[in-house]
Amino acid sequence: MIQASGLRKQYGDVVALDGVDLTVREGEIFGVLGQSGAGKSTLLRCVNLLERPDAGTVTVAGQDLTALRESDLNRARRRIGMIHQHFALLSSRTVAGNVAFPLEIMGVPRAERERRVGELLELVGLEGRGGHRPHQLSGGQKQRVGIARALAGNPSVLLSDEATSALDPATTQQILALLKRLNTELGLTILLITHEMNVVKTVCDSVAIMAGGRVEESGTIADLVRTPGSRLTREIFPLPEPAPAGSVTLTFAGQAGRPVVSEVVRKFDVDLSILGGSIEELAGDSVGRLRVALEGEDAGAALAYLRASGLIVEEAA
């Protein structure tokens, strides 16, 4: 659905994007994770060409946006919704007026606008609040207005720029649940920018980790947690580094309900001490990381058994 190739963007001496490649599949929620200055917001603005890259191409739904004339680009942008970090609502307009604004720009007749606004407010859980002003709303409600406005043009792609960073934890979970529901019910492809690992853990199917204007790691969460040395896995399941000499780090996905540890202890008569670890629910699967010390004559065979069982086994030097 979204394909960015070789994106480069420079502001003076600052290189914001340095050869970024990104592939977002249709219907998935893709997170771009990184700290401030990583280049993730610049990447998002390049996807809908609010910022034109100095080099590279951006293709959305099979259409090369970087090759379009301005008039054609404006039409293409109607299929790309945008949610902002600080809501960007018009204080002079009511909730309904804010949602209707992009429809007015598109020249949608008044009766159809009113019908569409009513549908959108119900969709985001704000029915009955169309006459309110932004100052009468909570932060979560303001963001719901922003989401409804982003959906006004019936987009196939939704871009989210730190949409939950200004919200408290409980409201963040509500907004993430709404985005997941919209993704499922409307078939929306969602590209979201965040510096919060919790956002990635809660809703994302795939992720790219950015630093210094480059993508350091990218892929589905299911694939990355099964990749030895994955930065995503280390950040989701932090363990003290460096690992103690002789210890073993086990990463498992899909085996959380199977008693693999007790199996290997019984089968190979080894002593196994747990040094640390945790389990998380990621992309609908139970994933965990466990650091252990394994002792016994058959410790090598026990490790081979764990590998054969589908666990990622990383031995400390």
Rank of each mutant, 00 (worst) to 15 (best):
V200T: 04
V200R: 05
V200P: 09
C204D: 09
C204I: 11
D205I: 00
S206Y: 01
V207D: 02
V207P: 03
A208G: 01
M210G: 04
M210R: 00
A211H: 15
G212L: 03
E216C: 09
E216V: 06
E216I: 05
E216R: 05
E217L: 07
E217D: 08
S218A: 15
S218K: 13
S218I: 15
S218N: 15
D223R: 11
D223Y: 08
D223T: 09
L224R: 05
V225K: 09
V225D: 07
V225I: 13
R226F: 00
R226N: 11
R226C: 11
T227R: 06
T227L: 06
T227K: 00
R231A: 13
L232F: 13
L232Y: 00
L232A: 07
T233I: 05
R234W: 12
E235S: 07
I236Q: 05
I236M: 13
I236V: 15
F237K: 00
F237Q: 04
P240A: 12
P240F: 04
P242S: 05
P244A: 06
P244S: 10
G246D: 06
S247H: 07
V248K: 06
V248W: 03
L250I: 11
T251V: 08
T251I: 10
F252C: 03
A256L: 00
A256R: 02
A256P: 11
A256K: 00
R258G: 10
V260Y: 04
S262I: 03
S262Q: 06
S262A: 11
E263N: 04
E263P: 12
V264H: 00
K267W: 12
F268H: 08
V270Y: 08
D271K: 12
D271Y: 10
L272S: 08
L272F: 14
L275G: 02
L275E: 13
S278V: 13
I279L: 08
E280H: 15
E280K: 06
E281I: 13
E281Y: 12
E281T: 14
L282E: 07
L282Y: 00
A283L: 02
A283C: 10
G284N: 05
D285S: 13
D285W: 03
D285A: 15
D285V: 15
S286P: 08
S286L: 14
S286D: 10
S286W: 00
V287M: 04
V287F: 06
G288P: 10
R289V: 01
R289K: 14
L290Q: 03
V292N: 07
A293H: 14
A293I: 12
A293E: 14
L294K: 01
L294E: 03
E295G: 07
G296A: 09
E297H: 06
E297I: 11
E297T: 11
A299L: 01
A299R: 14
G300T: 08
G300A: 02
A301V: 11
A301D: 06
A302M: 08
L303Q: 01
A304N: 04
A304T: 04
A304D: 08
Y305R: 02
L306E: 10
R307V: 03
R307F: 09
A308Q: 14
A308S: 14
S309Y: 06
